[in-house]
Design a protein around this nucleic acid. Structure first.
Lengths: 140, 140
DNA sequence: CTGACTGCAAACGTTTTGCACGGTA
DNA sequence: TACCGTGCAAAACGTTTGCAGTCAG
């Protein structure tokens, strides 16, 4: 659990309870859709409006506090900004897990884009499959 | 240009003009959003309904003829199913370019997921940046 | 105290649906 | 001919907006 108030203020955003609760939920779950964030924060803050969640997610993405993680065939999820990593997306339960990025991969991708004269800004590696938990459930 | 009628029939889909035009547009442009497909096919088939485009895209994705390419902050695009490749997504013009996948990357990712007991089904590598064309336009 | 933020409700754009008609096989 | 597919219009849905009231700094 981080100091969300400081994180917000460092990005020119007021530290409201709504925003801190949103950030806390996202950090607890790792990756969340707008709906899931709304449902979760509603538990501790029953007057929360869905519009407020939308406005804040958009704002925090603009300010570089959050990143959108687009997922094939589903609504996007959001995560806190952190070091480059790989997403393991479970096609059964929808959960997303982070894995550290290997230096070799990084180097390969940079080499590729340099040859193409493509000014690389952001890498995104998503691996879709069935997570260990869901594999075991199918087996049982 | 491929034989779209055969491709459709091989996937239990009737070869209508709407579907063949949709596939031809996607192959010509590489990657297209629903709107762009609609606009394009409308030129040669003015009675086309947007609902028909939606129904067919969904159907062809289910049947494995097309794949959805999710893009951060934008509507998804669609492409014909083809060998694994990397997407270079231009953040200026929105264009998506395909690059062949290096065997080393593939091996690395497989090793990673095997160690995690993750049953890998699909890899997706998207690199965001500025394409050569847009870099030159900014310079001029 | 003041501007930024929230919650509400309405507006908006996109996607989906149901149905009668038309076209493929 | 039988069914699948299309086009239309309406419905459903997700997201955005405007505004009056509230709160953090």
């Amino acid at each position: 659990m981080r100091d969300y108030a400081t994180l917000l203020k460092a990005n020119d955003l007021k530290a409201t309870f709504q925003r801190m609760n949103i950030l806390e939920s996202i950090e607890n779950y790792g990756h969340m859709s707008i709906d899931a964030i709304y449902e979760e924060v509603l538990k501790t803050h029953p007057s929360l409006s869905l519009a407020t969640v939308y406005k804040n997610i958009i704002l925090m993405v603009e300010k570089g506090v959050l990143v959108e993680v687009p997922i094939t065939g589903k609504k996007p999820k959001y995560e806190l900004v952190k070091d480059d990593h790989i997403h393991l997306v479970c096609t059964e339960c929808g959960d997303v897990e982070d894995k550290p990025r290997m230096q070799e991969t990084d180097t390969l991708l940079h080499t590729l884009t340099n040859n193409e004269h493509f000014k690389l800004e952001k890498q995104q590696i998503n691996l879709y499959g069935v997570c260990e938990k869901c594999q075991m459930e199918v087996a049982s």
